[in-house]
Computed example of a mutant assay.
Amino acid sequence: MSHESGSRRAASTLFANVADSVLRILRKEAKLARAELAENFDKAKVALALLATAVVLALVAAVVLANAGVSALVTVGVPPWVAALIVGGTVLLIAVGFAAKAMSDLSAESLAPSRTIRNVQRDIDVLKERIGG
């Protein structure tokens, strides 16, 4: 057996091992990405529930403005228009807070599979080091 054929065989084995490692890493990263996306989907469901809650609170604010809150403040001497602003403004601030939280949780950045992206980048860096060095 010549030294050259042994080197070719070693290079071929090395290439096959690298290819196998890359495929194994890609499979693991794909599995991690699926898990992370599922987790992010669950977070999106919660965010949508918060958004729905914000809408319900906005509707409650209209009812409160028309009924109990205004009436209660008017009975203690607050002018009706000021009472309406106080009660409605308070409930509206709560609804805006829920909506802001929901929109933040639904942003593309928060739903991206960030751990997978970091892992893939790290794996690429390791492979570059092994191939180059």
Rank of each mutant, 00 (worst) to 15 (best):
L92F: 12
P79K: 13
A99S: 14
A58Q: 07
V82K: 14
I117N: 14
S110A: 13
A99E: 06
R115W: 09
T75C: 05
F98A: 06
L93W: 07
S110P: 00
G97L: 09
P113H: 06
P79A: 09
G77W: 02
V96S: 12
D105T: 02
A83V: 02
P113N: 10
A72M: 09
V56L: 11
N119H: 14
I86T: 14
L65T: 03
L73I: 06
T116D: 08
V74R: 14
T116N: 13
V63R: 05
P113K: 04
A95C: 06
S110Y: 08
P113I: 01
L106A: 06
V60M: 12
L93A: 15
L73G: 10
A58F: 06
E109D: 10
A95F: 03
A100W: 07
S107M: 06
L111E: 01
G89I: 03
V63N: 10
T53W: 14
A108W: 09
K101E: 08
G77I: 02
A54L: 02
P113L: 01
V96L: 15
L57M: 08
E109R: 14
V55G: 15
A62T: 09
L65D: 03
V56N: 05
A102R: 03
A99D: 03
F98P: 00
S107A: 04
G88E: 01
W81P: 05
P113A: 11
S110R: 15
G88D: 01
G97P: 03
V56M: 10
A72T: 04
A84I: 03
A66C: 06
L92T: 13
S110E: 10
A62P: 00
A100F: 04
L59D: 08
T53H: 12
V56T: 12
P79F: 01
A112Y: 11
A95Q: 07
A112M: 04
V91W: 11
A112N: 12
V76C: 08
A54V: 01
R118F: 01
V60E: 10
G77F: 01
V55L: 15
G88A: 04
T75F: 08
D105L: 15
G69W: 01
N119K: 11
V70H: 02
A95G: 07
V64I: 13
A95Y: 04
S104G: 14
L92R: 08
L106T: 11
L93M: 13
A95E: 07
P113Q: 08
V56C: 06
T116H: 10
T90H: 11
A100H: 03
S107K: 10
A84Y: 10
N67L: 12
A54C: 09
L85M: 13
V63G: 11
V76H: 11
L111P: 02
L59C: 15
P80H: 00
I117D: 13
L106D: 09
A68L: 13
A108M: 05
T75A: 15
A61R: 00
P113D: 11
A68E: 04
L73K: 02
V74P: 02
L57H: 06
A100S: 13
L73W: 00
T75V: 07
P79L: 04
L73H: 05
S71N: 10
L85Q: 12
L111D: 03
L59F: 13
D105F: 13
P80V: 03
V78K: 00
A58S: 07
L85W: 07
P113G: 06
I117S: 15
L59W: 07
R115M: 12
A58H: 01
